[in-house]
């Protein structure tokens, strides 16, 4: 664990202690479950976003991709498709959309932030057209039951998220894919010159991020049994904030799995804790933004301070 990860962990623990003192209902298993349940989607989408950022990419359309995948899952569920197959519809739809996004961004050589902004609009219209004003409401409970079961005492969601993070960790640390991805993040030009299959790796990353977003959609539908047209509307910015908070640089070449988990958890712990201690929910975005600026600003200042101390010492 590096400095940022330690400070996030300490921040999480401090927040938990403060909130436990402030509210008698904070440190309960029920509340811990609430916080973790509310983190599921952001943990999965954040993982994909982390890979994209590490590659020097970004995707501001993940929220609507989750919406589209949720429609796919919801339709399949409503049509009475077997829950196991239904669960796969999410990642599959997400991967397909990731492929489409990659085609525009990678083949079209369009800057990712602008290209995905355009696709955001296109996908959003697709959601409206597909739903046509009728939400998918009161969906059957098949998927909820399937994903609500526990294996060795842990809910399926926990296993899936752990597996996803483990798989990404292996891919990053033990396969050439990880090396290539980070190399592209450091410098796409140099990566190309050194013979890395840049196009392939970038395609793969967008597809993986799409699949993870689609997986989040599966959990969303299982959780809410409802698909409305606003699914995921604030997700992209939340995910970017959480991942950057976790120490991944948007310049690419650097990422942190532990940091991403801690970033997501810290956001959710604060949101939950503030509400429990009586701060109105309207203040939550202020806290998110303040945290982002505070953490990054603090790091810069403390680095500068230690550097200047070093400079002073060497004199």
């Amino acid at each position: 664990m590096n400095g940022r990860e330690w400070s996030l962990l300490i921040a999480c623990i401090l927040a938990i202690i403060v909130f436990s003192v402030a509210s008698p209902y904070y440190a309960t298993s029920g509340n811990a479950g609430t916080v973790l349940r509310n983190s599921i989607e952001l943990l999965l989408v954040g993982l994909g976003m982390m890979l994209l950022l590490a590659m020097g990419g970004i995707d501001v359309s993940v929220g609507v991709v989750m919406g589209l995948a949720a429609i796919g899952v919801g339709r399949a569920l409503g049509a009475g498709v077997d829950p196991v197959l239904t669960a796969l519809v999410g990642p599959l739809t997400g991967a397909l959309l990731g492929l489409l996004t990659a085609a525009v961004i990678v083949l079209g050589r369009v800057p990712a932030i602008v290209g995905t902004l355009g696709l955001f609009g296109v996908y959003r219209t697709a959601i409206f057209v597909l739903l046509g004003g009728q939400w998918l409401s009161g969906l059957p409970t098949g998927l909820t039951v399937l994903l609500g079961t526990t294996i060795l005492g842990l809910p399926v969601a926990a296993w899936v998220i752990a597996l996803a993070y483990l798989a990404v960790w292996i891919a990053l640390r033990r396969t050439p894919f990880g090396l290539h991805l980070l190399a592209i993040g450091n410098s796409e030009e140099k990566a190309r010159l050194s013979g890395i299959p840049v196009v392939k790796v970038r395609f793969a990353t967008f597809i993986v991020s799409g699949a993870l977003t689609g997986l989040a959609a599966t959990f969303y539908v299982a959780n809410y049994r409802n698909v409305e047209m606003t699914v995921g509307s604030t997700l992209a910015l939340d995910a970017i904030a959480a991942v950057v908070l976790g120490g991944t640089s948007i310049l690419g070449g650097k990422c942190s799995l532990v940091g991403t988990v801690l970033g997501v958890l810290l956001l959710r712990i604060l949101q939950n804790g503030l509400l429990l201690t009586g701060v109105p929910s309207l203040w939550q975005p202020v806290v998110t933004g303040g945290l982002l600026i505070g953490v990054l600003g603090f790091e810069v200042l403390s680095n500068r301070l230690s550097l200047s101390r070093l400079g002073w010492a060497s004199k």
Binding site: A241, G289, L296, V300
Partner: peptide, 23 residues
């Protein structure tokens, strides 16, 4: 002054400013 990347710095202030206006 703090050398925070503009995308992130203004994402942060986006949350703060728009949140403050509502809160």
């Amino acid at each position: 002054k703090l050398s925070i990347l503009p995308l992130i710095a203004t994402l942060g202030t986006f949350f703060v400013y728009s949140g403050l206006a509502l809160a």
